[in-house]
Structures are given as structure tokens and as C-alpha cells.
Design a protein around this nucleic acid. Structure first.
Length: 957
RNA sequence: GCCGAAGUGGUGGAAUUGGUAGACACGCUGGAUUCAAAAUCCAGUGCAUUCACGUGCGUGAGGGUUCGAGUCCCUCCUUCGGUACCA
């Protein structure tokens, strides 16, 4: 056995050979399937999940495994505590980045994704992550996306009943329409009209479908996309920068397209309330709450002077309605066309064209007040005065009703608008009693408002809601910021929508036995005509006998919205997951992943889960019980300054120190390989003459360039100046990325220090929730620890005697701390406990087999390879990872005496040792008699003596 | 602007319910070992002052509560993250 060779030379401190040992055990674990789990188990279940990655072409860098290592330690600890732990991994392979990467490397995304996943898996195994690889799948596997499509079909075939507060089959709604029309139906919808059963019966099938679509949980409507005429393509939001395409810098405009949406708004209240019962960080919950953006208020109808209809507005401040001196509609509001007078038509048209010409980004960036008058007037139902109706881009068509009553006295935006256009301002809230209160605080006394004069604002709001309902003007209502989710992408690499359109354009969802609807193969991934998906060019797929297919595909979030359920039963062909498996595994107990998914992924996943819950297909209302966001490991980025103006036609680089006070517009920062840089990451980082040569070798276009250092000039291989050249560089901290040449690959670190050392060092860096720059310098401390541990087990013979009291105390102090730290995910302090323990054991010259064994067991979750090796060397045959985690025993931790700090007026002045069970009075008495205490209290009166048992003594004089 | 999180040595970071601030580690200094180096081991290391014992000051700034504050309260500053005219 190779491992025996390592330990037979016992009188010599042998370094641990990580490469050999890790290779051996990696194979052993694989061959023996020790991380395989099934739901047929008597043990309690536990589900630890990492957010599955999109396998990018670059492979893993040292930042990626941070969360995986943490969850792996947690998993191993749970396993050793008798749990049946589901810990799977897979690939989020569909989506834009995968498609873009495939184009770059000139491969089909199906192939590049597969290839990248293989590399990821290999790297993950090198890190010693204990995934059950039998459950691996990718979101682009037809066997998986069959069920993504199926859930989508189910969404399509359901509506949300607001009375039952759950999803109900659409057939029930059709029956209700046929029986009673839509007047009595309580459902989440976007259909504005009311109809009777007779009306419904008169409609043809297409007309009925058009109404039903406004109720379905998956539906189609017109939405806007970022359209770039020049590139002939639709762009994602992050492909647009400052209103221009990121690639090429071409103008981007808003283009209307009929697209698929999910009615997430139906679940707004439940998505909000569900947050109360789960263990997520407060900040993450707050982000989700803000995103849902619930606000209470009233919807009020304003009659339009000289027109039949009315304008409905939503307001959180019905108490200020007496101050509503004008109204504003969103420029896209349906009524604009109807109410605009002939006189104002030109103004309005000009303004609408102006708004259309602006991109969304420009609209957000531009804070200037703009608007136009429609010429029409509404009647304020409380003052009965005519108030002008304007349009303005600050009113958004998607929020509330797309119309507002403007109260310029109590709303900053309304105020700016009124001031600019000379509209009337009536002050309706006296805020003098509440200096410093902001408008959103809803504080003040109502004035100039008839029957609510003198009331406090909150009371006035309640009163007004009542009166509004009494008078039939509207009702109290709740509004959400949350919008229905756009679910269409004009792309290739995603799930095809499982739907078909007949000749009349009526949509039906494919049934389960028609799934999966396979994504057809095509090598031409360029956009289709008019910004359509590349699929639109695959005519033989789109045009079927008697129907056509949807050419848009689903977004990347589709596949990640339910993958955690598939892991429970990944190879099931009959169901998305078998009920036995789902009932056993229930939900995710611990979910670890990056905060960048705080909104989109988690919101979609919770939404899908709640839908499946309504269908009785999952047993819990929330998918992720406890969630932890790991921080990012960043990298140092090094730049050198290149002057924009060439000197006699030659490029000139200048020392960062010399550019410190220069005008930043006169030079550009060129990122360089961090390997070239001396004192990398520090303020003093620089390129020496040697590293400038390396740089020139890498970027030969600069071979003749001038490098002006602070102490001389380097050019053409020669340095003229005093001492050696120092070309200082700019150092920044940021994401590790290929384009910044600062990627540190875990493979290199593992090769040099071993996987166990790498794992423990990543944990030792700090709390996992925190982001921090990678710095290999500190790794030596952990490396020393690993070697100390190795020597503890392998250097010399171990005694089988009972361990001493001191040894037990040192060991059990560690066991207690490590156990608690793992549960609270404080892995950095757990690593430090191991270090303290091993240092203490060395001081005690401990060579005890029991101690070494227990230490090995406790260390196993952190350092799976070396502990496995040591466990074997300690004479065991079964894997260390299948053992029980050692329990600490408080008996060994009992102290005979306790060191008390003695404080005078709260300042420590000395120490004293007292028996652990000594009473307070004796401690107080003894303390006051002590010599150094006497010196401090001499001639002073003692006001008070505070004795905190087991803590400290404080004397107040 | 609004919301959230966080500011501790030269560095990464520790500190139950308020109870010895700086654990552990890096780095640095000195020493041992070595022909020498690496590696390893030992000692020291918040700042100021002192030959020294010690003393003073110290957790972003200022105030407060308390016998006692890194921890609680108020005001402010900075950094990071989220969000963006949300009626």
C-alpha cells in the first residue's frame, strides 16, 4: 500500500504527500460510491444544496469553491451525525452566457456546455466535494427540460383564484364564465371588462381565448424589448450600456413584441408572507420585500369632464385628495388618444414621439421634468373643481393604473411638475408639528380639506378610505411593485415553449405525452428576421401540419426554478419527481449560493414552488428553509498607465506614482498579468526591468515603447537612471476574470499545498458571507497546521493508554467549539480551534491514539483526504467519512479554578484565581484584601463591588 | 435619493446575554539549527511613554445610557451591496 510507505520511517518527520494520497482516495470514494444516497432510508433526511453553476469555459477559479467547500463541510458533519444527506450537483447549462460562449469558441452550445461540465466536475472532485454524482443532470438535457416544459404547460392551464388563494384549473374558470360571466369571479387577471354568461356564449372561440389569456398564469401580451436596429437583434438589459449596445455602441430603442409572461403578481402576497417563516438573512428578505413592494392605499375614480369614462388612480395618500389640483397619465395610457383635444393634439403627439425616442436608460438617467397638457379636464370628486389632465413620463404605465392624481403640495415630483408648468398648489398637510419628517413618514395635520380638517394624517387616511367606498368612488386597495415576469427570449439556447398556435392564432399547451418538445439542432445562432429567435429560421420545425410553434425560448431562470426538486428523483421518466422521493426529502434545508441571485432566481423558484404546492405536488410552501449567501472572492487587478498621446509616434507608459495627480483623461489603464507584478496587490506594486521585458514579450506591439519610471527611463531593453527601474502599477480589487488577467486557478493551489489545505485556507479567510480578496500569502499557516496534524498521527508510536486529563480537556474544548461553529457556519473560527488544539497537544507532547483518532474524526469534514489516510494509518478499515462525529463531554471541561480579572472603575488592574464554586461574598472579601487592590483603594471610599460569577470583579471607588 | 450591511493592529480576521479587546493566522523583529539557504523550532510584536515595573491612549467621528460599551441609544462620516421617478 502506498500509504504505508509514507509512515514506516517513523523516526523522521515525513512531509505529507498530498498528490498521491488525494489521487488514491478520490478513486476509492468513486469506486465505493460512499456519497450515494437514496430516499429509502430510516435515517432522518437533510438536504444541502449549492446553487448549481453555469459551467463557463474558463473553469473554476479560487472564488467559486468557497460556497461549495462550506456546504461540503456542513454536509459531511451532518452525515457523521446520522443524517441521510442529499447533496447533489448539476449544471445550469441553458441561457445567454452559454450561447455567447459557444459562438465565441465556434462550437454548438450543446457540445461546449457538456465539455465545460466535465471540467467542472473534475475540478470539484479535486476539491474533495462529496456530491452524489449519480444525480447529476443539466438543464439542457431533454429528460430534464421535458418537465420544465410540463410545469410551464400546467401554469398555462391554470388561473389564480384570489378567494381560494390558490391556482385552479382553467377549465373551472371556463365553466364559471359559461354559468355566470366574470362578474362574480375572483381571480388574478388583467381583463378590464365585465361580461355575463350570455355575452360569453356569444363569443367565438378565439374571442374567448383572448379573454382567458388575461387570466392564465402563463400568458402572452405585448411587451417591450431592447431592440438594436444596427445589430438586428434584441439585447438583454446587461448588454445595454447608457442607451447604447455594449457591443459596437449602437443606439438601442424600445420595440413592442408579443411575448410570454408569468403572472407572478398573483402570488405577490404569498411571496411576501412566506418570507416570515424562513431562515434567510434579514438583508436578503428586505431585498425581496422591496422587490415585491407592497403598498397600501386606495384606488379612486375621477370623472372626465365631457367624457363617459373615468380615470382610475392608485394613491397611498387619499387624505391629500383635496390638494389634487391636476392629474397625470403615463404617455402610453389608453385614454390619452381619446381625451386629447384638437388644440392640444400636436403638443401631445410631439411629446409622445419625444418619449419614444428615449431609451429606458435615458429615461431613468434624465431627471428633468417633462410633460404635455391633453386639453381635457377631470373632476376632483371632493372639491368638485375641474382639474387639468396632463401626460408625463414620470408616471409609469406599468405601476398602479398608469395614472395619478397629483398633489403638488405633498409630493416632490408633483411639486416639481406643477412648478415647471405653473399649476395650482394647495397646501393640505400642516407638517410644522413634525419637523424633519419626510413625506413617506405620513405625518402631519390635515388643513384646507373640509371634513377631515384637523385630523392626523393616519386617521385621515382611514377616514378617506371609508368615505371613498361610501360614495362609490373607489375602494381601499393594495398595490405591488412586482411585475409579471417576462418569460420570452429571442434566443436559441433555451427550452422551447411547449405550445402550438393554430391558424386562428389560438394557443394550446402540449400535453405530457407530447413532451419533451425538443430544441431542434441548428448551427446558425445569429438572430432571425426582425429580432426573432434563431429558431424562426428552422422552418421545418416551426411550421407543422395545421399549426406552428413558438420560436422564442424560455429564459435561463426557467431551468433553475425547480431543479432542486428534480435532484430528489433525477431519472424519473413518468413524473417531474416521484411522490415517495418528494415526501421523503421534502425541501432544501440549507441552500448556499451567491447574493447575485437574491431577486430573480429565488423569486421564480419560490413562485414555481408555490404553484406546485397549490397542485399538491410538493409538501411545503417554501422551497428553501435556510439560505446563506457566500461572499465573493475577489482578485487584485494590476494596471499600468499608458499615455493617450504618443511621444514622437511611440507609445509611452508612465509610473502610477507619477500619474497620481495627472488628469485621468490623459491616460488609460491597461490591465496586465498579475504574474508580472512585484509586490502584487500592494500600494507599492511595480514592474521591474525584468517584468517589463516579460510584458513586452506578451504584448509585442509595445516592444519599442517608452517606460517612464520614477527614477529613470526604460526603453529597448535598456534602463537609464539611478538604481533599478520601478514602474509602479495601479492596484485595484475586483472580480476574478480572464479579461483582467487575475484568475487564480484552484488546481495550481491544490497541486502545491494539497486539497485539504486549500479547503481549510478558503474557510480560514473569514466568514463565508463576506467578500474578500484572494491572497495566497496566508496559506502557509494552514499548511503548517496540516503538517503538524500529520506528524501528530504519523511521527512516532502512539500510546494506547488512557489520555490524560489535560489532553482530554484540550480535545473536548475543540470538539465543543467546532461542533457549534459548523452549525452556525463559522468555519473560520472552527479552523482556528483546530490550530489551537494541535498547538496545545504539541505543548503537552501528546502521542495518544485515542486523542489522535478523535481529532481525525472531527477534522474529517474539513480535510477529507488526509483524515481518510490517517484514519487508515490508525488501524481502521472503513472510511472515516462513514464514522460518527465525536461528541464533546462537558465533564472534561470543568475548571477547578477560574482566573478573574480585577477591575477598578471598570479598568483591569490585575488578575486573581478563585475556586470555581466560591461564593460571591468570599470573592469580594478576598479581592479587597489583595495587596495591589489595597494600593488602588487606599484612602478612597468603596462605593460598590460587583462580582460576576465566572467573569470578573469590579470595584467602584 | 431610498433600503440594507459593515467600519477593530502593518494584513486577514477573533471576541456568549454588555464583563480581560486584538484569539487564530500572515507579516515583521530577534534567536536556535545549518558551511549556507530553504524548511523547522523558540521568543517578541496595538500605539505612545519608560532602562524597567508601570502608566496613558486605543474598536470610523462626536455625544449618551451603565459599576462596566467593539457590543445598547442618538447624531454624523466613510465603504460595500440592492434599487431607481413605485404615486
Amino acid at each position: 500500500m502506498h500509504s504505508l510507505l509514507l509512515c514506516t520511517i517513523s523516526n523522521y518527520i515525513m512531509d505529507y504527500n498530498s498528490i498521491k494520497v488525494e489521487a488514491f482516495w478520490k478513486q476509492y470514494w468513486k469506486d465505493n460510491d460512499i456519497y450515494r444516497v437514496t430516499h429509502e432510508s430510516d435515517k432522518p433526511k437533510y438536504y444541502v444544496l449549492d446553487m448549481f453553476p453555469y459551467p463557463s469555459g474558463a473553469g473554476l477559479h479560487v472564488g467559486h469553491p468557497l460556497g461549495y467547500i462550506a456546504s461540503d463541510i456542513f454536509t459531511r458533519h451532518k452525515r457523521m451525525n446520522g443524517y441521510n444527506v442529499l447533496h447533489p450537483m448539476g449544471w445550469d447549462a441553458f441561457g445567454l452566457p452559454a450561447e455567447e460562449y459557444a459562438k465565441q469558441v465556434n462550437m454548438h452550445p450543446a457540445d461546449s456546455s457538456k465539455q465545460n461540465a466535465v471540467r467542472y466536475k473534475e475540478q470539484m472532485s479535486s476539491v474533495g466535494l462529496s456530491f452524489d454524482w449519480a444525480r447529476e443532470f443539466a438543464t439542457c438535457d431533454p429528460a430534464y427540460y421535458k418537465w420544465t416544459q410540463w410545469i410551464f404547460s400546467e401554469l398555462f392551464n391554470h388561473y389564480y383564484d384570489t378567494k381560494e388563494e390558490k391556482a385552479i384549473p382553467i377549465q373551472d374558470l371556463i365553466d364559471a364564465f359559461a354559468a355566470n360571466g366574470n362578474g362574480t369571479v375572483q381571480a388574478a387577471h388583467s381583463y378590464q371588462e365585465t361580461f355575463t354568461a350570455e355575452d360569453w356564449a356569444k363569443l367565438n372561440r378565439k374571442e374567448q381565448e383572448d379573454i382567458l389569456t388575461e387570466y392564465r398564469l402563463a400568458y402572452r401580451k405585448v411587451g417591450y424589448v431592447n431592440w438594436c436596429e444596427k445589430l438586428g437583434t434584441v439585447l438583454a438589459n446587461d448588454q445595454v450600456k447608457d442607451g447604447l449596445s455594449e457591443r459596437g455602441g449602437h443606439p438601442v430603442e424600445q420595440k413592442a413584441m408579443t411575448q410570454w409572461y408569468l403572472r407572478t403578481t398573483a402570488y405577490a402576497e404569498r411571496l411576501l408572507n412566506g418570507l416570515d417563516d424562513i431562515e434567510w438573512s434579514d438583508s436578503l428578505k428586505t431585498i425581496q420585500r422591496n422587490w415585491i413592494g407592497r403598498s397600501e392605499g386606495a384606488s379612486v375614480h375621477f370623472q372626465i369632464d365631457g367624457h363617459e369614462g373615468d380615470i382610475e388612480v392608485f394613491t397611498t395618500r387619499p387624505d391629500t385628495i383635496f390638494g389634487a389640483t391636476y392629474m397625470v397619465l403615463a404617455p402610453e395610457h389608453d385614454l390619452v388618444e381619446i381625451i386629447t383635444t384638437a388644440d392640444q393634439k400636436e403638443d401631445i403627439d410631439t411629446y409622445i414621439n419625444y418619449v419614444k425616442s428615449k431609451s429606458e436608460v435615458e429615461r431613468m438617467a434624465d431627471k428633468e421634468v417633462t410633460g404635455a397638457f391633453t386639453g381635457a379636464y377631470a373632476i376632483n370628486p371632493f372639491t368638485n373643481t375641474k382639474i387639468p389632465i396632463w401626460i408625463g413620463e414620470y408616471v409609469l404605465k406599468d405601476y398602479g393604473t398608469g395614472a395619478i392624481m397629483a398633489v403638488p403640495s405633498d409630493d416632490d415630483r408633483d411639486n416639481n411638475f406643477a412648478t415647471k408648468f405653473g399649476l395650482e398648489i394647495i397646501d393640505v398637510v400642516d407638517k410644522s408639528k413634525y419637523p424633519g419628517a419626510s413625506l413617506s413618514d405620513k405625518l402631519g395635520i390635515i388643513i384646507n380639506s373640509d371634513f377631515i380638517n384637523g385630523m392626523e394624517v393616519p386617521d385621515a387616511i382611514t377616514k378617506m378610505c371609508e368615505v371613498i367606498e361610501e360614495r362609490g368612488l373607489g375602494s381601499a386597495s393594495i398595490n405591488y411593485k412586482l411585475r409579471d415576469a417576462n418569460f420570452s427570449r429571442q434566443r436559441y439556447w433555451g427550452e422551447p415553449f411547449p405550445v402550438k398556435y393554430d391558424d386562428d392564432g389560438i394557443v394550446t399547451a402540449l400535453s405530457k405525452d407530447e413532451l419533451p418538445l425538443l430544441l431542434p439542432h441548428t448551427d446558425d445562432l445569429s438572430p432571425g428576421e426582425g429580432g426573432q429567435s434563431p429558431l424562426s429560421r428552422v422552418k421545418e420545425w416551426v411550421n407543422q401540419d395545421g399549426f406552428t410553434r413558438e420560436t422564442d425560448v424560455m429564459p435561463a431562470v426557467a431551468g433553475s426554478s425547480w431543479y432542486f426538486l428534480r435532484f430528489m428523483d433525477p431519472h424519473n421518466d413518468d413524473e417531474f419527481a416521484g411522490q415517495d422521493a418528494i415526501n421523503y426529502w421534502q425541501d432544501v434545508d440549507l441552500y448556499v449560493g451567491g447574493a447575485e441571485h437574491a431577486v430573480a432566481h429565488l423569486m421564480y423558484a419560490r413562485f414555481w414552488h408555490k404553484f406546485l404546492y397549490d397542485k399538491g405536488m410538493v409538501p411545503t410552501g417554501e422551497p428553501f428553509k435556510r439560505l446563506v449567501n457566500q461572499g465573493m472572492i475577489q482578485g487584485g487587478i494590476e494596471f499600468i498607465g499608458l499615455l493617450k498621446e504618443k511621444q514622437d509616434g511611440i507609445s509611452k507608459f508612465m509610473c502610477a506614482k507619477m500619474l497620481q495627480h495627472a488628469d485621468p483623461s490623459t491616460y488609460v489603464k491597461i490591465p496586465i498579468k498579475i504574474q508580472f507584478v512585484n509586490e502584487y496587490g500592494k500600494d507599492s506594486s511595480y514592474l521591474s526591468a525584468e517584468s517589463i521585458k516579460q510584458f513586452i514579450g506578451w504584448r509585442s506591439e509595445y516592444k519599442d515603447a517608452i517606460f517612464e519610471c520614477s527614477n529613470g527611463v526604460y526603453q529597448n531593453g535598456k534602463f537609464t537612471g539611478k538604481d533599478t527601474s520601478h514602474l509602479h502599477t495601479f492596484s485595484e480589487t475586483g472580480k476574478m476574470s480572464k479579461s483582467k488577467f487575475n484568475v487564480i486557478n484552484p488546481d495550481e493551489v491544490i497541486e502545491r499545498y494539497g486539497s485539504d489545505c486549500f479547503r481549510m485556507y478558503e474557510m480560514f479567510l473569514g466568514p463565508i458571507q463576506q467578500s474578500k480578496p484572494w491572497d495566497t500569502n496566508g496559506i502557509d499557516g494552514v499548511y503548517k497546521f496540516i503538517n503538524k496534524y500529520w506528524n501528530l498521527v504519523t511521527d512516532g508510536d502512539l500510546s494506547t493508554d488512557d489520555p490524560s486529563k489535560e489532553e482530554l480537556k484540550v480535545l473536548h474544548t475543540m470538539l465543543k467549539k467546532v461542533d457549534a461553529d459548523i452549525q452556525s457556519l463559522s468555519f473560520n473560527t472552527a479552523v482556528s480551534s483546530f490550530m489551537i488544539c494541535i498547538n496545545d497537544l504539541r505543548k503537552l507532547k501528546s502521542k495518544n491514539k485515542h486523542i489522535a483518532s478523535e481529532f481525525t474524526l472531527a477534522l474529517a469534514p474539513f480535510a477529507p483526504f488526509i483524515t481518510e489516510e490517517c484514519w487508515k494509518l490508525l488501524g481502521n478499515n472503513e472510511s472515516v467519512h462513514l464514522q460518527s462525529f465525536p461528541k464533546h463531554n462537558d465533564e472534561y471541561l470543568v475548571e477547578d479554578s477560574i482566573e478573574y480579572p480585577i477591575c477598578i472603575n471598570g479598568k483591569k488592574r490585575g488578575m486573581a484565581s478563585f475556586g470555581a464554586d466560591l461564593d460571591k461574598t468570599t470573592i469580594e472579601k478576598t479581592t479587597l484584601e489583595m495587596e495591589f487592590v489595597q494600593q488602588w483603594i487606599e484612602g478612597k471610599t468603596i462605593k460598590k463591588v460587583i462580582v460576576v460569577p465566572n467573569r470578573m470583579v469590579n470595584i467602584v471607588i
